[in-house]
């Protein structure tokens, strides 16, 4: 809430429309980011137990119907998609037509392949949100990271910033291209206290919907209660400042395409070095360079004065 007020305040201060004011407002935001936001305490989340997923793709179908997405290229019960690869031999990813995809990983030493559901992780401090210069993204108190297509300019910085490569863009549209990503069914379900469509549709109960803090406790209890079953890591608990979607696996996460080098800091913290420098330049530069000017033109000034004297 504090964050929102501050943003409103800055909006007000910008009404003057002076760049320098904007820049100092920015500095304030930088310090706000410095004080670790950490997410809304009551926010909801989803715990994904990947050991249970059988790769039926029902969640993909449910997402498609719930979000009114275009017809898929192949039926949702066509499992040949698991053999598809995008550029660079990489597994399928979210697109403008699919906000979630399930990928199959054949892991050595595991009897069955492991299936991994992929969608927006709904970060506590989303990189897309903090990098957006028109404030198109909002982290709702319920935990969803939602997007306002009406103000999006289409700079696509959010796609550059997202550490999980989630946002897709309707490159095919010339008239109204927008970012396409999972919004945790905010409009149709989450807002009314209901779980996302994919969670509800899952026949295997892979996903548990609940308060994020409860899910964290539950996940750790699952890890401890089943010694040897799970890898002792809850992916998303701390990654890039914590995410609303979290994952349990029985094989090391880096073997199933999870980036294990993201660190615990939210992405905005990497930008702070620069943001901290902004007010410094704004305050010091004018004085410094006026001083330089006076010094370097002193001789000239003296020359001009001396004939008079």
């Amino acid at each position: 809430m504090k964050k929102l007020n501050r943003r409103n305040f800055i909006k007000g201060s910008l009404a003057g429309g002076i760049a320098t004011v904007a820049a100092s407002g920015k500095a304030k935001k930088a310090s706000a980011a410095g004080g670790d936001f950490g997410g809304y305490p009551e926010s909801m989340g989803v715990l994904v137990d990947m050991t249970k997923c059988v790769g039926c793709r029902t969640c993909e179908a449910a997402c498609n119907k719930e979000q009114g997405l275009p017809e898929p290229d192949k039926p949702f019960d066509d499992y040949s998609v698991f053999d598809e690869h995008r550029h660079g031999g990489l597994p399928r990813r979210t697109t403008e037509k699919a906000y979630t995809v399930v990928n199959r990983y054949n892991v050595e030493g595991r009897d069955h392949p492991l299936f991994r559901k992929f969608q927006c992780n709904h970060c506590n401090e989303p990189a897309c949100l903090t990098s957006c210069f028109v404030n198109a993204y909002t982290k709702t108190p319920e935990g969803a990271v939602i997007y306002n297509p009406k103000v999006c300019v289409g700079c696509r910085t959010c796609m550059v910033a997202c550490p999980f490569y989630v946002p897709a863009y309707s490159f095919t549209s010339a008239i109204n291209p927008v970012v396409k990503k999972c919004i945790m069914c905010y409009d149709t379900r989450l807002k009314f206290g209901r779980p996302p469509a994919c969670v509800e549709s899952c026949p295997q109960g892979v996903m548990t919907f609940g308060k994020r803090k409860d899910l964290i406790a539950l996940a750790h209890q699952k890890i401890e209660g089943n010694p040897g079953k799970y890898v002792d890591h809850l992916y998303g608990e701390h990654e890039v400042g914590g995410t609303s979607w979290m994952y349990l696996s029985d094989v090391p996460f880096d073997k199933i395409g999870f980036d294990m080098h993201l660190g615990k800091e939210p992405i905005i913290s990497y930008v702070k070095d620069f943001l901290a420098m902004v007010p410094m330049v704004l305050c010091i530069w004018p004085a410094l360079f006026t001083g330089f000017h006076l010094l370097s033109t002193r001789k000239q000034a003296n020359k001009e004065e001396s004939p008079k004297a």
Binding site: R7, I10, A22, A32, C132, F133, V134, A136, V153, G154
Partner: peptide, 23 residues
């Protein structure tokens, strides 16, 4: 830009002052 006609949005319509691109 995807929607170049919205170039002025970061100036006047919807401000995201926390972003580097805003600056």
């Amino acid at each position: 830009l995807g929607q170049p006609w919205r170039l002025v949005y970061p100036m006047f319509v919807s401000l995201g002052p926390a972003a580097v691109l805003f600056l």
